[in-house]
Simulated scan of single mutants.
Amino acid sequence: MECEFYSIGKVEEICKITKKALRYYDKMGILSPDKIMDENGYRYYSKKNLLSVPMIKYYKQSGFKLEEMKEFLAGAPYTLFENSFRDKIDELKEQEKEIHLKLRSIEDWYGLIREAEMVLKNNVCNVSIKYIDRCQMTFLDQEYNYDYMDSIINIEFTNYIESIKNAITGPVIIQFPSFKDKVEGKCKNIRIMQETILKCDADKSIEYGGEMVISCYHIGSHSTIDETYKKIQDFISEYGYKCDEEVYERYVTDYWTTQDENKFVTEVFVKIKR
């Protein structure tokens, strides 16, 4: 005949749960032994009591804390289950949003690092024509003084994103209003942009991409980026392309990723006019 009670060691073996956890559950009033032998303090559990363990594991898997499980295990009314489960669903949905945001940010950054590695490994610095995918960008217009580090790691832009309760991902992109002024050191204003993750008001974002551009990667310090502008100018002249006046710099790897300027990778591109 099967034993009516099980020692704590046997419960550990049967239910795959540690003695430490069982003692803690007892302390919390979640799962207490049916009897404790006075002479040696040994704990014994009935088979019926052990059936609470799968329930505890399931509630734990579902994100409930021990304090929240207590009433469930005691046989709470359906209304308490309904309210608690609805609240837990709302709580987990918020956590899901946060995790998605974090995952998206890390995946996009990882993608930039991989892109830079391929550019550096293969010395990709020839001018080409490519298509840019369409997306929504959050932006901020600013004054510009040719301080790259201050523009890319941008305190004002970071504060602005926080003020509109949004989140951004991907590379920093700066739009310069004039290709010519940028090269000649006469640019006074810029538009800094990054892809927005959360939905925001129409006046706080712009549509970006969905167009063909003339593009060229620049490898190395931003102080020598005019060399890449010259390549693009020569390419436009040679093939007779008509391009917009604005020019963009997309910072694949920069001060956010490395202090070694030799490993900076910047994509310079200009939109082709239709």
Rank of each mutant, 00 (worst) to 15 (best):
E115I: 02
I153A: 07
D141Q: 11
K60A: 13
K20L: 13
D141I: 11
P33A: 09
T258K: 06
I36H: 05
A167W: 02
G41D: 08
F85I: 14
E115D: 08
I206R: 04
L31E: 03
C187N: 00
T266G: 02
M69S: 03
V11T: 08
I129C: 12
K242S: 08
Q61F: 10
E245G: 09
K231W: 09
S105W: 13
I225L: 07
R114D: 10
E245Y: 11
E184C: 04
I152D: 00
G9E: 06
V11W: 03
D38L: 14
Y229F: 15
I89M: 12
F235A: 01
S221H: 07
M137Q: 06
K20N: 12
F235W: 03
I232M: 00
Y58I: 14
D38A: 14
K199E: 15
K182G: 04
Y148V: 11
E107L: 10
E156G: 07
M55G: 05
F81Q: 06
I17H: 00
C3Y: 15
Y229R: 09
G63C: 05
V172L: 03
F5S: 10
V268L: 10
G170F: 02
F157E: 02
F176H: 00
S105D: 13
F176I: 00
G185L: 05
R104M: 14
A21K: 10
I174C: 02
M1T: 06
S178G: 06
K19F: 11
L50R: 00
D254W: 01
V265T: 02
T253Y: 04
C243K: 02
E12I: 09
N123A: 12
L51Y: 15
G63W: 03
D234E: 12
S46R: 01
E82H: 08
G75I: 09
R134L: 13
Q233V: 02
I161S: 00
V213M: 06
P54Y: 09
V127A: 02
T169F: 14
I272G: 04
I17E: 01
A116W: 02
G209M: 08
C200P: 04
Y110A: 14
E98H: 15
S205V: 08
I219P: 01
K65A: 11
T138I: 13
E39K: 04
I236S: 01
I36G: 03
Y131W: 14
